[in-house]
């Protein structure tokens, strides 16, 4: 699993209660706004964080979301990186979870992972049954 050093991140959010979902969403929104993302991208980032936080709360009961600003790629594009990790039950079929959950027709399934992937520029997931799940997503800031 991914090793995390909290000191490397600008924001560390502990997800434990249902209300932490809304809090993490707000924190992500403020941070993305400060990074000068377009309003649409700020909303996409906040929505993705909301989905990640909910997954943690629903499936693992508790976990962390780490957010940082960085420069990525050969063009040094300003990028927001979000890492969500938990020590929950893990996902048995990652492929299916990422590709399938496109519908919102069920309360528990769907996971919103496919949605998150579509909102962000890059998406990486590691999951091990019984050990936990880590999702890393990034979004680059577009010019003007």
């Amino acid at each position: 699993m991914i090793e995390v050093n909290p000191q490397d991140y600008d924001i560390v959010l502990k997800i434990k209660d249902e209300s932490d979902i809304a809090v993490s969403r707000q924190m992500a929104k403020n941070f993305a706004q400060k990074m000068n993302f377009s309003l649409a991208d700020v909303t996409k980032i906040a929505t993705a964080v909301s989905e990640l936080a909910r997954n943690i709360y629903r499936y693992a009961k508790e976990g962390y979301i780490y957010i940082r600003k960085k420069e990525a790629g050969p063009e040094k594009a300003t990028t927001i990186e979000i890492l969500a990790c938990d020590k929950g039950p893990g996902i048995e079929n990652v492929e299916l979870a990422v590709s399938g959950g496109y519908t919102t027709s069920e309360r528990s399934l769907g996971l919103g992972l496919a949605g998150i992937r579509r909102l962000m520029d890059s998406f990486h997931i590691e999951s091990e049954v019984g050990k936990g799940t880590a999702v890393i997503v990034e979004k680059r800031r577009r010019a003007f």
């Binding site: 309003l39 649409a40 700020v42 909303t43 996409k44 929505t47 496109y102 919102t104 027709s105 919103g112 496919a114 949605g115 579509r118 909102l119």
Partner: peptide
Amino acid sequence: IQPQVALTLAQMGIRLK
């Protein structure tokens, strides 16, 4: 619905049934 919210929902592939 705010325009940026509409874009986000559309990009996630969500339909409001």
